[in-house]
Amino acid sequence: MLKKLNWGKLVVYSALVLFSLLYLMPIYMTIITALKHPVNISLTTAWKLPGNINWGSFAEAYNTLGPNFMNSLYLAVSATVISAILGSLNGYVFSKWKFPGNEIVFTLVLFGMFIPYQIILIPLFRVLRQLNLYGGIPGLALAHIVYGIPITSLIFRNFYARIPESMIESAQMDGAGFFGIYRRIILPLSAPGFVVVVIWQFTQIWNEFLWGITLTRHSANPITVGLAQLAGGQAVSWNLPMAGSLLAAFPVLIIYILMGRYFIRGLLAGSVKG
């Protein structure tokens, strides 16, 4: 019995280690390539550790991508904050102030989460142009806020649904109204909900590409567009796009490693029926 168990454990652990190597292989390759001097990068020695380390790749990548990085930061922070506030209010209404047709309306809003964005691309930039928002970060932020409404509302709605009705009712007895309840009961309990939504929206916005490339002028390009251009040029030395990839991945990776639990919760929220 004991022997059998050990065999099982051995299989499990070796499979886990094997998979881990598989999942870490790309990041290993990225780091070692970023640390090489362009002249030392060749296809045949791609897997070898760098002989002498070239930290310069990162400085160079930051020189090129720095403005894009800042654009993405402004964009993601501002759009995420507004998204979270809107989502919290919407989720509060959808879960605690049900109106006739509440569920139908909610389902219709939810639909916006799943549309392929190609279907709204042409009208989107026509409208942004009419609003004089085309080309800059505010326009891109507006798009992210609007199309973020479904997911943020969903997450908060499911989160608030767990707050017992009795709490709401007793607050109403005490004379609290819409905002009173929100401030005294909902908001103090909202912290984990906000963390989940903020992480989710920030990651989504940081990583988005299609709108970035179609809706912004050069000076407002987010990091994904900057990286695509850095890597898309042809006679490139690969240390630069690799360092750029690490730079573009840095903020989301940090969030993920520090707050993985909440990240997963957001991930599951998007797929568990509301």
Binding site: F125, R126, L128, R129, Y134, G135, I213, T214, L215, R217, H218, S219, Q229, G232, G233, Q234
Partner: peptide, 23 residues
Amino acid sequence: ATVTGGSGVNAKAVLKTRMLGGN
């Protein structure tokens, strides 16, 4: 404002969105 890609394939697409966007 440089958009890389041989023979301008990507640049032309980006230019178009900007011109259409009135920018």
